[in-house]
Design a binder for these strands. Sequence first.
DNA 1: ACAGTTTCCCGTAAATGC
DNA 2: TGCATTTACGGGAAACTG
Lengths: 433, 433
Amino acid sequence: ERQPCMTANLQRPLVLKTGNKFTVLLRFLVKLPVLNYQLKVKAVIDKDVTDRKGVRKFNILGTNTKVMNTEESNGSMAVEFRDLKLNWQKVAGSRNSEAPLLVTKELHLLSFESALQLGQPGINIQLKAASLPVVVISHVDQMSSAWASVLWYNMLTSEPKDLQFFQSPPEAQWSQLSKVLSWQFSSVTTQGLSEEQLGTLADKLLGPEAERNPDERIPWNKFYEPQRVNKKVISFWMWIDAILDLIEKHLLALWNDGVIMGFISLERAEDLLRDKCPGTFLLRFSESCKEGAISFTWIEHDMNHTPKFHSVTPYTKKDLCAVSLADTIRTYKWMAADNIPDEPLHFLYPHIQKDEAFGKYYTQNIEPPEPMEVEKAGGRTGGYIQKMIISVSVVHPSHLQDKLMLMPPDVLESLEQFVSLTDVHDAMNVDCQ
Amino acid sequence: ERQPCMTANLQRPLVLKTGNKFTVLLRFLVKLPVLNYQLKVKAVIDKDVTDRKGVRKFNILGTNTKVMNTEESNGSMAVEFRDLKLNWQKVAGSRNSEAPLLVTKELHLLSFESALQLGQPGINIQLKAASLPVVVISHVDQMSSAWASVLWYNMLTSEPKDLQFFQSPPEAQWSQLSKVLSWQFSSVTTQGLSEEQLGTLADKLLGPEAERNPDERIPWNKFYEPQRVNKKVISFWMWIDAILDLIEKHLLALWNDGVIMGFISLERAEDLLRDKCPGTFLLRFSESCKEGAISFTWIEHDMNHTPKFHSVTPYTKKDLCAVSLADTIRTYKWMAADNIPDEPLHFLYPHIQKDEAFGKYYTQNIEPPEPMEVEKAGGRTGGYIQKMIISVSVVHPSHLQDKLMLMPPDVLESLEQFVSLTDVHDAMNVDCQ
DNA sequence: ACAGTTTCCCGTAAATGC
DNA sequence: TGCATTTACGGGAAACTG
């Protein structure tokens, strides 16, 4: 029960989706003398790959034969295949139970073939080029998984065509993986991951730094397969990728501004906030929500000046579609029945006024109209009354007593009388008419 | 900037979308003696229709030739074409500027051909059948428009193949159109339109009942073309259809329960509410929002017991995706800075407690957790604090003074002191740290 | 039964055509 | 240039399939 979001997909080369168009630019790196004939190139998929059992077979649709053009700038030759499409070739035995791998671990090769005639006698030279291994998917929900394969492959091998790579994928060093992870963020935003953020991720994959063996490597499983993390079963990569998606679609400006700490453990967050003003908060990604979600954690002091920390249920894509994070931070309230609502968020860590940090992204008008505008002649209002969608947490009245405590006892007492008075008023209405 | 909703499209026969599969069931109504050969049927589109300029040409893809089956129950013959698809045949002159009509007014015919051999000498009888005119669209956003064509055609002619129908579409009687409109609602829900609702629609199309000519007919333009209605330009049918969509996707249960008056003018709504309890409301569809939206209108009394009416900015699909209408009605608040929020909605017209009418559809937990659950050992909260998304209208504090007025003046005065006290408290925080 | 995979198709956005 | 129409494709849900 939800509604359409912005669509804008990540460019992820080497992942092809059946039925979607793709483009390949092919360049001939050897410089040739001018030819007196056209150099035809043909694109094929999985040429010479016939011995793999249970592996899907595909065809290339679209104009798969093109002629190389000579580029004016440097005389080198190139050809761009546009509007190619893959589709399934349904054959017996294709993708059967013998298939050793998930489709997103199944690697394929695009090949390009041409023939060069050298000299008059007609010596034919077969030219061949192949892409790096590609992953073919049939639905975008496989993209995340497919991209994990592409990343791992290219991070860990320089073999151009090791189609058996995922039979036993090698392990990665943190120094390699951290670069790749940071790059994922910098390719979607203007900000990669900071050392602090990467440290949090390292803790998740390798354990606390103090206990770490510097030679420890990260196995594919630990990166990709769902792992049990206190009750929840989550794949590290899927979690990261869901957050990437959330950033791209809903948090891009805030992320680029650097106001999202994001990857920070709750413990560390509380340590940072401990000596800060009440109402100081920071933004953290949920560690347990698979679909990508962001929460704010803030500090309050109770009567005894003991710090207390609170975090709101994380905001998912659905929440952020309804109200942006900046607007949410601006208007978030704690409410209790018959109390004046409290706005608990005041300072972005370490001590930036929230309006200073987020003000430029506010979109809602939260000013009430002048009384004149609402009241129109004859009791008829004319226009509509503006509404605003906000987040509130309903809390026990005792949580709002910090402020009540500041009131003189006689006011408090009269207020309590007033509260019961409104209840009577409501009850009275039931009987009228 | 929105997010995916339930998809569940209306079944709208006689509208075909290119690239989507469709099914045709064909029955042979004449009972034949048992044949000693198979009766082959071929499906074609726009056979014999060659003389229309600028009209798109299509092909039927899929198995367009099938054999008739004899149904066991009654020995009659039938065949079901499944997984047929239409796609464009790009020909010169197709869909050019000469095309006299919009694509959704362009009518096409599906035909089915077979040949029957009677007797030994081999007398061939050509059998032909044609569908009612169909509309072919290439995008779902043309569905609404296409369905308007199908409705108008079948409401106003019994000609089986008047492909020129929209060259000069006839006018409709209200008695016909009102039945068709009500049927649109009853085919999506369990409730058609009431006399009162139809009356409101008749007022829109024909003007106030008192001034109406009983023989007045509704021209196609008035039903289908965008008309200027106080500043906004809206097509009557598009407006109705957007509301149908809103009902199907977000208001189905409420509509079926009959709690949505929906089609009622603001004037009439205010008349109905005038002598009702303060806080009595009813639900109305926006008359000016093209995309389909619903608002609540309620009554309040000011100090002098003069009724005042308010309506909130209508809720669109996007709003209802975030929070259902029932939850919205439950939690809608009027707020002013430093005031206790007010919940202005109490009784569904005429005088049903709102929880009674909407309670079974509430999904949110609005109870605060016990204080114990929030406070965890060591000042660490452990879990997340639940949030709730609600609608609020920010109003001038004077609007919430009805209740304040009920408080003794000394409490009021002390409260005001308190209000400024919190402001100081906030200002103080700015300097700390 | 079931999980991985594909198909179907709505609905946003962009491209195309006239 | 603007509007009608089509294409592209993400994403939700259902269908498929071993």
